[in-house]
Design a protein around this nucleic acid. Structure first.
Lengths: 124, 124
DNA sequence: ATTCGTGCAAAGACTTTGCATAAAT
DNA sequence: ATTTATGCAAAGTCTTTGCACGAAT
C-alpha cells in the first residue's frame, strides 16, 4: 500500500534531524536539499500517510497551522511550550496533576492539551 | 474611531445571546436575521475591532478556526471543553494547580491554554 | 505491463483587502 | 460635507485534489 520512495525517505530524515516539530513548508525547504524537484503536494500527502501509519504525530497549537514530529517522541504523554520571542516550539515531558477535574459534572474527559507560552531559556 | 453602527450592534447582540463562543460564519448567519444585507467581510472586520476594543476575546482551539466570546465571560481565568460528539465548546471556570511547573528551568511562562476533549453531559 | 507516487496547476476553506458606494456625523 | 463603515469581489494563506507523467514492482 504505502511505498517507501526517495521522497518519503527524505521527508523521514528531515523529521529525524529536526530539533522540534515542523510545518509542511519547513519540511519542503529541507527536503529539497536531498530531492531538488520535490513538491509541496507530495510533502502534504506524505505527511498525511505518515500520520496514518503512526510514524508522525500532529502538533496543533491554537491559532496556528499544524506541525508534525516523529511518533517516538510523542509516545510518552507530553505538552508544548511556545516562545513568544523566537517562535520556537519546545516539547515538555510530564503533565499536571488532574486536568480532568476542571470539567463540570457529567462531562467525560478522554484527553487534553496544554500549551505554555512565554520566553524560552535561549531568549531570556 | 470606532463607530457604533447597525451592523455592529447586531453583531454585539448575537454574541450576547450566544451560549458559547461563535465563529465568523455563525455570527453572520445569526446577524442576518437583524440586518439582512450584512456581509461576511463586515463580520470579520467588526470582530477584529471588537477584539482590539477588548469587547471580545478570541477562543482558539488547536486545529480549528478561531471562535470569539464576549469579554465579560473571559475576564476570569478559564479554559475550554470540546465535545467530540456534538462539537460544542464549553467554557470551564478555574484552573489546575501550577501549570508553569511543566516548563524546563530557565523558561519563563507568561500564560497557558488548556483544552479538554471528551463527551459532554448532553451527549453522555 | 501494471500499479502507485509525483509534480504541477486548479480548486477549496478561511481570512484579509481594495475600492466605489452608502451611512453616520 | 466630511469621515468612516459597508458590500462585493479579488486576492492571500494554507491545504487538498485531478490528472497526466514517471517511477517502482
Amino acid at each position: 500500500m504505502t511505498r517507501d520512495t526517495r521522497q518519503r525517505r527524505a521527508i523521514r530524515s528531515v523529521f529525524d534531524d529536526a530539533d522540534g516539530p515542523l510545518g509542511p513548508q519547513e519540511v519542503l525547504d529541507r527536503a529539497q536539499r536531498d530531492v531538488p524537484g520535490i513538491g509541496l503536494a507530495t510533502v502534504y500527502r506524505t505527511i498525511k500517510l505518515m500520520v496514518e501509519d503512526q510514524e508522525l504525530n500532529p502538533v496543533e497549537l491554537p491559532g496556528e497551522p499544524a506541525r508534525y514530529e516523529p511518533a517516538e517522541r510523542g509516545h510518552s504523554h507530553h505538552h508544548f511550550f511556545k516562545c513568544d520571542a523566537c517562535g520556537r516550539v519546545y516539547e515538555m515531558q510530564g503533565c499536571v496533576s488532574n486536568p480532568s477535574s476542571l470539567a463540570p459534572d457529567g462531562f467525560r474527559v478522554s484527553r487534553h492539551e496544554i500549551v505554555l507560552y512565554g520566553t524560552c531559556a535561549n531568549c531570556a
